[in-house]
Amino acid sequence: MLTLECPYCGLMADETELSPGYEAHLKRFGPASSPEEFEAYMFARKNPKGVHFERWRHSYGCGKWFLAARCTATLEVFGTYPAQVGEPPADIIAKIQARRPEWKAGWQPDGKDTK
Protein backbone atom coordinates (compact mmCIF):
# COMPACT_ATOMS: atom_id res chain seq x y z
CA MET A 1 0.00 0.00 0.00
CA LEU A 2 2.02 2.85 -1.33
CA THR A 3 1.71 6.51 -0.54
CA LEU A 4 2.41 8.91 -3.36
CA GLU A 5 2.29 12.68 -3.29
CA CYS A 6 -0.22 14.08 -5.73
CA PRO A 7 1.65 16.99 -7.32
CA TYR A 8 -1.60 18.82 -8.00
CA CYS A 9 -3.09 18.54 -4.51
CA GLY A 10 0.20 18.63 -2.58
CA LEU A 11 -1.12 15.72 -0.57
CA MET A 12 0.30 12.35 0.37
CA ALA A 13 -2.36 10.11 -1.08
CA ASP A 14 -3.03 6.58 0.02
CA GLU A 15 -2.81 3.92 -2.68
CA THR A 16 -6.52 3.25 -2.20
CA GLU A 17 -7.20 6.82 -3.34
CA LEU A 18 -5.21 6.26 -6.54
CA SER A 19 -5.57 4.21 -9.69
CA PRO A 20 -2.54 2.77 -11.46
CA GLY A 21 -1.91 3.61 -15.10
CA TYR A 22 1.18 1.52 -15.81
CA GLU A 23 4.28 2.74 -17.62
CA ALA A 24 4.83 6.45 -18.20
CA HIS A 25 6.39 8.38 -21.07
CA LEU A 26 5.10 6.08 -23.78
CA LYS A 27 5.02 7.64 -27.20
CA ARG A 28 1.82 7.07 -29.12
CA PHE A 29 2.12 5.57 -32.60
CA GLY A 30 -0.87 6.04 -34.90
CA PRO A 31 -1.96 4.98 -38.39
CA ALA A 32 1.26 5.75 -40.24
CA SER A 33 3.46 3.75 -37.90
CA SER A 34 5.32 0.53 -38.68
CA PRO A 35 4.33 -2.76 -37.09
CA GLU A 36 7.44 -2.56 -34.92
CA GLU A 37 6.63 0.93 -33.68
CA PHE A 38 3.06 -0.02 -32.94
CA GLU A 39 4.11 -3.16 -31.15
CA ALA A 40 6.53 -1.16 -29.01
CA TYR A 41 3.78 1.34 -28.18
CA MET A 42 1.12 -1.25 -27.36
CA PHE A 43 2.98 -4.15 -25.88
CA ALA A 44 6.68 -3.64 -25.13
CA ARG A 45 6.76 -2.79 -21.45
CA LYS A 46 9.89 -2.50 -19.36
CA ASN A 47 8.91 -4.06 -16.06
CA PRO A 48 12.34 -3.42 -14.53
CA LYS A 49 13.53 -4.43 -11.11
CA GLY A 50 14.67 -1.00 -10.05
CA VAL A 51 13.97 2.52 -11.26
CA HIS A 52 10.66 2.81 -13.05
CA PHE A 53 8.39 5.59 -14.28
CA GLU A 54 4.68 5.12 -13.84
CA ARG A 55 1.36 6.81 -14.39
CA TRP A 56 -1.03 7.21 -11.50
CA ARG A 57 -4.40 8.91 -11.30
CA HIS A 58 -5.58 10.61 -8.13
CA SER A 59 -8.96 9.12 -8.88
CA TYR A 60 -10.56 9.59 -5.45
CA GLY A 61 -9.09 13.07 -5.24
CA CYS A 62 -8.60 15.70 -7.92
CA GLY A 63 -8.98 13.19 -10.75
CA LYS A 64 -5.69 14.21 -12.32
CA TRP A 65 -3.06 11.93 -13.76
CA PHE A 66 0.48 12.32 -12.51
CA LEU A 67 3.73 10.48 -13.00
CA ALA A 68 5.91 8.81 -10.40
CA ALA A 69 9.51 7.66 -10.40
CA ARG A 70 10.10 4.86 -7.97
CA CYS A 71 12.14 1.75 -7.35
CA THR A 72 10.10 -1.37 -7.94
CA ALA A 73 12.39 -3.40 -5.70
CA THR A 74 12.60 -1.22 -2.58
CA LEU A 75 9.48 0.89 -3.24
CA GLU A 76 11.50 4.05 -2.67
CA VAL A 77 9.79 6.95 -4.41
CA PHE A 78 12.15 9.42 -6.05
CA GLY A 79 9.44 11.89 -6.89
CA THR A 80 6.11 12.60 -8.53
CA TYR A 81 5.40 15.19 -11.19
CA PRO A 82 2.55 16.39 -13.41
CA ALA A 83 1.80 14.31 -16.50
CA GLN A 84 2.14 17.16 -18.98
CA VAL A 85 5.80 16.55 -19.76
CA GLY A 86 7.63 14.55 -22.39
CA GLU A 87 10.35 13.40 -20.07
CA PRO A 88 11.08 13.36 -16.34
CA PRO A 89 12.09 16.70 -14.77
CA ALA A 90 15.80 17.28 -14.22
CA ASP A 91 15.54 17.39 -10.42
CA ILE A 92 14.00 13.94 -10.35
CA ILE A 93 16.66 12.56 -12.69
CA ALA A 94 19.30 14.09 -10.42
CA LYS A 95 17.72 12.55 -7.34
CA ILE A 96 17.59 9.12 -8.92
CA GLN A 97 21.22 9.38 -10.01
CA ALA A 98 22.21 10.36 -6.48
CA ARG A 99 20.32 7.43 -4.97
CA ARG A 100 21.11 4.91 -7.71
CA PRO A 101 24.51 5.79 -9.22
CA GLU A 102 24.43 2.62 -11.33
CA TRP A 103 21.17 3.63 -13.03
CA LYS A 104 21.33 4.32 -16.75
CA ALA A 105 18.80 7.02 -17.51
CA GLY A 106 16.04 5.85 -19.80
CA TRP A 107 12.29 5.86 -19.84
CA GLN A 108 11.16 4.85 -23.29
CA PRO A 109 10.62 1.25 -24.40
CA ASP A 110 13.08 1.51 -27.28
CA GLY A 111 15.76 2.96 -25.04
CA LYS A 112 16.47 5.63 -27.65
CA ASP A 113 16.38 8.38 -25.06
CA THR A 114 19.07 6.79 -22.94
CA LYS A 115 21.49 9.51 -21.97
Partner: peptide, 13 residues
Amino acid sequence: HGWMEDWLQCEWW
Protein backbone atom coordinates in the same frame (compact mmCIF):
# COMPACT_ATOMS: atom_id res chain seq x y z
CA HIS B 1 -14.94 9.76 -18.48
CA GLY B 2 -11.60 8.54 -17.13
CA TRP B 3 -10.55 7.55 -20.65
CA MET B 4 -11.32 11.05 -21.93
CA GLU B 5 -9.41 12.68 -19.08
CA ASP B 6 -6.48 10.35 -19.65
CA TRP B 7 -6.07 11.52 -23.25
CA LEU B 8 -6.70 15.15 -22.39
CA GLN B 9 -4.25 15.20 -19.50
CA CYS B 10 -1.53 12.90 -20.75
CA GLU B 11 -1.45 13.15 -24.55
CA TRP B 12 -3.23 16.23 -25.84
CA TRP B 13 -2.79 18.52 -22.85
